[in-house]
């Protein structure tokens, strides 16, 4: 079973943090198909978090097809994220390493690289939304 935590400095709304933690656990194989997520009441009590927030997170996961709620029984994992994405990690990581070497050669220090990455990432995300 997964145990949630909230980071008040992450900048993400609480429900998104919960979603992210489930996805992360799925990716790392900590949660497998058929595993039961803790009940809304238990999460609310353990984390002192609004039950509606937990419900909202579970609904989003359900919408993404990662979990399914069985009324009166609980919420269960229906799919895992591990295989598909891990396989793709290798080549992408290599591309990124190549890009980082290029950036260093161009004279960028760590901070500049991070700023460039974040602003490009945000722009790309913004375009997706728009």
């Amino acid at each position: 079973m997964i145990e949630f935590h909230l980071n008040s400095r992450s900048g993400l709304p609480p429900y998104q943090q919960l979603v992210q933690q489930v996805r992360h656990a799925l990716r790392l194989g900590l949660l497998k198909e058929g595993d039961r997520l803790p009940t809304v009441k238990d999460v609310a009590k353990q984390m002192a978090v609004n039950p509606n927030t937990v419900l909202k997170a579970y609904r989003e996961l359900e919408h993404d097809g990662l979990v399914a709620a069985r009324p009166g029984v609980g919420t269960f994992v229906t799919r895992t994220l591990a295989d598909a994405t891990l396989a793709a990690h290798g080549p992408l990581r290599k591309d990124l390493q190549r890009w980082l070497t290029k950036a260093r050669l161009a004279g960028l220090d760590d901070e500049s690289i991070e700023a460039l990455f974040m602003s490009t990432f945000r722009d790309a995300a913004g375009e997706d939304v728009a």
Partner: peptide, 14 residues
Amino acid sequence: RREFMQDLMEAVAE
């Protein structure tokens, strides 16, 4: 404070 909020959230869920 944490205990109080935990109990309150539990009651809300329940």
